[in-house]
Amino acid sequence: MAMTARQRAKVSLYVQAGIFVVAVAAVIIAVDWKTVGTSVFNFAKIGPMFPDIFLVGLKNTLIYTALGFVVGLSGGLLLALMKLSSFPLYRWLATGYIEFFRGVPALLVFIAFGYGVPLAFGIQWDVNIIVMVSLGMVAAAYIAETLRAGLQAVPKGQMEAARSLGMPHWRAMVSIVIPQAFKIVLPPLTNEIILLTKDSSLIYVLGLTASQYELTKFGRDGISSLGAGLTPLLVAGAFYLVITIPLSLLARKFESRSARTKR
């Protein structure tokens, strides 16, 4: 007997759920639980990670991310304005910068500023400076494109109204266009911060002292010192979620708020 469309949809859903259950079961059966118990989920031995994972790892990850974001946001705004400039040289410079730093792995940028700059100029930067510059310059390239889209999404009439009231172009930008653009890009900007949080782990390529460890390096260090296999890395990963999940929730809140004010 032929099924109705509704019955077919129902059967299809059951089949999909079945496939999912079978896949999960297959993984559970395939895993070597004995080894996993001692070297991935071995929480009995990770006591020594606390409280330093808060006081050093989490703290440094937050500091590195914040430093990168400050540079990334201001650099990104500058690049976005350059990209929208009527002066061709500014547009070319911004486009070249964005293409380069978006196209090159962030890891290479860290190596360039961590090892290349001391070789080329004979100066050794503080770790905070290296993170700020490396992470910030990569972030600026991504944030610039986000902000450019936001600036262009502000209706042209806003600039015209501001200019009609006698505001110079820069004043109209600062007081009228940029505040509205930031409101528009708040959700994607929050995503940029999440990406930055994770990219801050790339600092591991530099030689860090123990007090400069961020979460990933802290976890790797635990692998060699605690004898609990990969468990410390698992714990470090969980701490990233402590940062990124609230940010995601925040982004969603912004998104629903801007959807509400839009008519």
Binding site: P155, G157, Q158, A161, S164, I176, P179, Q180, K183, T261
Partner: peptide
């Protein structure tokens, strides 16, 4: 010179 637009162009923020 005051200007009034068809679509108002008030500053929404």
């Amino acid at each position: 010179v005051g200007m009034v637009f068809q679509h108002f162009n008030l500053f929404p923020h």
